[in-house]
Amino acid sequence: MWGRNVYDSIAKFLQFQLTVNVVAVFCAFIGACIVKESPLRAVQMLWVNLIMDTLASLALATEVPTEELLTRKPYGRTRPLISRTMMKNIIGHAVYQLGVMLFILFLGPTAFDMDDGRPVDSVFRPSQHFTMIFNVFVLMTLFNEINCRKIHGEKNVFRGIFTNPIFYGIWIVTFVVQILLVQYGSFAFSCVPLSIEQWMWCFFFGVTVLLWNQLVNLIPVTRHMPKWGAGEVYEQTLPADLGPEGQPRQASSLTKGQILWLRGITRLQTQLRVIKAFQESFNRYPPKYVTLDRLRASTIPKLSSYYYDKRPSKPLHIVTNTDNEQLPLTITHDT
């Protein structure tokens, strides 16, 4: 269960990160080509990267495993890391968020009654126009983080959200910090304070990401949808597949069970060869056992008369004690 939970946590983070990356790259590219200026400043992108990399990884990777993980089939070895459902969510949310940001970029001054913040004579000045683009992008990212908690097409994305205090704690802190950056971070983040009405519009565009996720879930998943990260299985040539000269046999067809059986036999043969080699080295170089003379030499002081005794030492099987009585055979063997 924990293994599946770790796999799902990685997939959730990838879906969230790729969506943010696609929107940010296309928004910066289109803005640089048409407006001659990126709607998102460099410091603002650093804050977005902090949300996307550090905070989101902590929030999405700390989900508690549930019993529902065991009701799904196990993931195959060749299963793509980014499934068709995840790709559908990434493309669907990227299109929606990019459309909202381009709408504010080109039609925002007219729709929301504010000054056009597009640079004149290549001179950029902080404005409510570009501040609203940055704020809407961050809020849509935050609400899409809630959507990324469910990556298998579940409709209720709020289910179990209060079982993970790290997730909603990070989400609330990020939302509060975003308000402070917009209202009071004019110098560092090139922002201008927004009015209550503009904040309501930003919040509205953020909440609609949740509604858009329900529409994306209604799109059926077909085989024509792209997937990414499918693993490749490399066939291993087994000893049974080799001919007499070491060449692979032609038209060698083995079932999966036979391949697994042959792999098990190969491992057993390798282990038996290792044991046989160890026994042969053991017989070739036998260990030196402790004799009675060596035992006496290690226990009797060197000043003793034992070292000056010229009589031949007795073999182990005729060992006697101090009373000239022969010791039992078991004691001799133990010695």
Rank of each mutant, 00 (worst) to 15 (best):
R4G: 13
Y7F: 11
D8N: 13
S9V: 05
I10K: 05
I10A: 12
F13R: 02
Q15Y: 02
Q15A: 03
F16C: 06
V20E: 07
V23I: 15
V25M: 12
F29E: 07
I30P: 00
G31D: 07
V35Q: 01
S38W: 01
R41G: 12
L50Q: 04
D53A: 12
S57L: 15
V64W: 11
T66S: 15
G76C: 09
L81Y: 11
L81K: 01
M86R: 01
G92W: 09
V95K: 05
F103I: 13
I104P: 04
F106G: 07
F106H: 14
P109N: 08
T110L: 14
D113M: 10
D115K: 14
D116W: 03
R118W: 03
P119M: 06
D121F: 00
Q128S: 10
T131I: 02
V136D: 04
F143G: 02
F143P: 04
E145L: 15
I151C: 01
N156P: 01
N156W: 03
F158G: 09
N164D: 11
F167L: 08
F167S: 00
F167I: 04
G169R: 03
I170L: 04
I170Q: 04
T174M: 11
I179T: 06
L180C: 11
L181V: 14
L181E: 10
G185W: 05
G185V: 02
A188L: 14
S190T: 09
C191K: 03
C191P: 00
C191Y: 07
P193N: 02
W199S: 09
F205K: 10
G206D: 05
L210H: 10
V216P: 07
K227R: 13
G229P: 10
G231M: 14
G231K: 14
T237V: 14
A240V: 02
G246S: 04
P248Q: 05
R249L: 09
L254K: 00
K256H: 09
K256T: 06
G257L: 12
G257M: 13
G264V: 01
G264A: 13
I265P: 00
R267V: 13
R267T: 09
Q269E: 15
T270L: 07
I275Q: 15
F278Y: 08
F282L: 12
R284V: 07
R284H: 12
V290A: 11
T291M: 06
L292T: 08
D293G: 12
R294E: 15
L295A: 10
K302E: 13
K302A: 07
L303T: 14
Y306M: 00
D309T: 02
K310I: 09
P312S: 11
S313I: 02
K314E: 04
H317R: 12
E325H: 03
E325D: 11
I331V: 13
